[in-house]
Simulated scan of single mutants.
Amino acid sequence: MIEAVLSASPLFWPGVLGSLLLAALLSRRAGRLLRAHRAVGFLLLFAVGGVVTLTLLPDVRMSLWENARYGVRQCSFDRVAPHPLSELLTATQSSLNVALFVPLGATAALAGTWGRRIAAGTFAALLPVAVEAVQYAVPALGRACDGQDLLDNYFGLALGLLLGVLAGPLGRLAVRSTRRRATRPVARRRTLRP
């Protein structure tokens, strides 16, 4: 399954590297925007870059022109249902769709203030709909709008939010203790003069 995803998207590795580079360069600003540590800003930017890389880069098994010509403008909502846990624990398209949105949900929960958490959560909740809308509107991408993808993405967001809520207090405690140690005055040693 993973090989099929990578073969359909030769821009996967450049997209991942570009996402890493942008996340590293802009993590401090994104952290400030979220009122959180820059690691949370890095996670946000890398998660959004991963979503864009895996969902909006064109499928190049056919040319863009052929994708546009043979692409069907419709969203499939038949057979949209939760998957059994055993299926989500194997490498399937659904499990990859779930895993793709877990970091984004965790980022929303790790934002520094309630207002920022709500804003990040709203952005995270709108992103799957925006991705499916772009896949529907731009058939040249060779992607398909699918209701099952939405369900899987929202399940991943929910898992990420849960993980972020559980890990948030521990992460904030670690950051505070690190900051306290860094700002604690250093005791000067007295030297005896002969």
Score class of each variant (00 low, 15 high):
residue 73 R to V: 09
residue 143 R to G: 06
residue 157 L to Q: 07
residue 100 L to D: 01
residue 101 F to E: 03
residue 51 V to N: 01
residue 32 R to E: 15
residue 168 G to K: 06
residue 163 L to A: 15
residue 172 R to H: 10
residue 5 V to T: 00
residue 154 Y to T: 10
residue 51 V to F: 03
residue 128 P to Q: 02
residue 138 V to R: 07
residue 179 R to M: 11
residue 18 G to S: 03
residue 10 P to W: 03
residue 6 L to F: 10
residue 183 T to N: 13
residue 108 A to T: 07
residue 47 A to G: 01
residue 84 P to W: 11
residue 3 E to A: 05
residue 9 S to F: 03
residue 106 A to T: 08
residue 170 L to K: 07
residue 55 T to Q: 03
residue 112 G to F: 08
residue 99 A to E: 03
residue 115 G to A: 13
residue 145 C to K: 10
residue 145 C to D: 09
residue 156 G to W: 01
residue 64 L to I: 06
residue 82 P to N: 12
residue 10 P to K: 01
residue 77 F to T: 14
residue 45 L to P: 00
residue 112 G to H: 11
residue 152 D to Q: 07
residue 114 W to H: 15
residue 189 R to Y: 05
residue 58 P to K: 05
residue 73 R to C: 09
residue 156 G to Q: 02
residue 175 V to N: 10
residue 107 T to R: 09
residue 150 L to T: 03
residue 127 L to D: 06
residue 3 E to V: 00
residue 91 A to K: 01
residue 94 S to N: 13
residue 183 T to Q: 12
residue 29 R to I: 09
residue 131 V to M: 00
residue 93 Q to T: 11
residue 91 A to D: 04
residue 119 A to E: 13
residue 136 Y to T: 05
residue 58 P to T: 04
residue 38 R to S: 15
residue 126 L to D: 04
residue 144 A to S: 14
residue 37 H to D: 15
residue 62 M to F: 13
residue 52 V to Y: 05
residue 39 A to E: 08
residue 141 L to V: 10
residue 109 A to T: 12
residue 60 V to A: 12
residue 119 A to C: 13
residue 89 L to M: 15
residue 79 R to L: 12
residue 12 F to N: 02
residue 74 Q to Y: 14
residue 148 Q to P: 04
residue 17 L to V: 14
residue 147 G to W: 06
residue 48 V to P: 02
residue 89 L to S: 10
residue 157 L to N: 08
residue 168 G to I: 05
residue 58 P to W: 01
residue 76 S to Y: 13
residue 183 T to Y: 08
residue 100 L to W: 02
residue 105 G to C: 08
residue 154 Y to D: 09
residue 115 G to P: 04
residue 112 G to R: 09
residue 20 L to D: 03
residue 150 L to Q: 04
residue 55 T to H: 01
residue 72 V to R: 15
residue 176 R to A: 15
residue 131 V to P: 01
residue 16 V to P: 00
residue 121 G to H: 09
residue 103 P to A: 04
residue 34 L to C: 12
residue 176 R to L: 14
residue 128 P to N: 02
residue 50 G to M: 02
